[in-house]
């Protein structure tokens, strides 16, 4: 099966990951398109029985680092600073969506990449280490910091009682 046809099945995943990385749909689609272009340009490097998903995420990572990281939304705010007040008129559901997106903005991109690959894309820790070209220990410490800060940001922004879905 040639590369082009296999690519198609990973597009929704690539789009989802890109949206988490750059936090803007249009920019995310740009990133995905460049990733696809690069994959096709390097078709000769591609091993048909290799892990296509990991290869695509690696290409996206390289593009993110070289070009998109500085273009995505990232307020230079440390977690100790006061957060913006949530505006009173928001519908609850809008508040909830923005909270996660805003909290993600506050993670350094290097932490965000690890978190998204582990939690959302479900890669193993070893796969993440290979995709990002970092040691396993670094994956785990970034993951820890990312989740700790995510928890801090989310709890800051939501003074009301949270509905927790219990694991059975």
């Amino acid at each position: 099966m040639n590369l082009r046809r296999q690519l198609a099945q990973w597009i929704p995943h690539l789009r989802r990951h890109a949206r988490g990385l750059v936090l803007d749909r249009e920019l995310a689609d740009d990133l995905v398109q460049e990733t696809l272009l690069r994959a096709l340009a390097r078709e000769h490097q591609w091993q048909p029985d290799g892990n296509l998903r990991a290869w695509l995420f690696t290409l996206m990572h390289n593009l993110f680092v070289s070009d998109y990281r500085r273009r995505c939304r990232s307020p230079v705010v440390s977690v100790e600073e006061l957060p913006e007040q949530a505006s009173q008129g928001d519908a609850d559901s809008e508040c909830q969506l923005r909270d996660v997106s805003r909290a993600l903005e506050r993670l350094p991109p290097a932490w965000r990449e690890v978190l998204l690959l582990v939690s959302i894309e479900g890669l193993s820790y070893e796969e993440v280490a290979r995709v990002l070209g970092i040691p396993l220990g670094t994956v785990m410490s970034r993951l820890h910091r990312a989740r700790r800060r995510l928890a801090e940001c989310l709890e800051e922004e939501r003074p009301r009682l949270e509905v927790v879905h219990e694991r059975s």
């Binding site: 996660v100 993600l104 939690s119 989740r147 995510l150 928890a151």
Partner: peptide, 8 residues
């Protein structure tokens, strides 16, 4: 952290 991850 677990709850935050779930929301994510």
């Amino acid at each position: 952290m677990q709850r935050a991850d779930r929301r994510l």
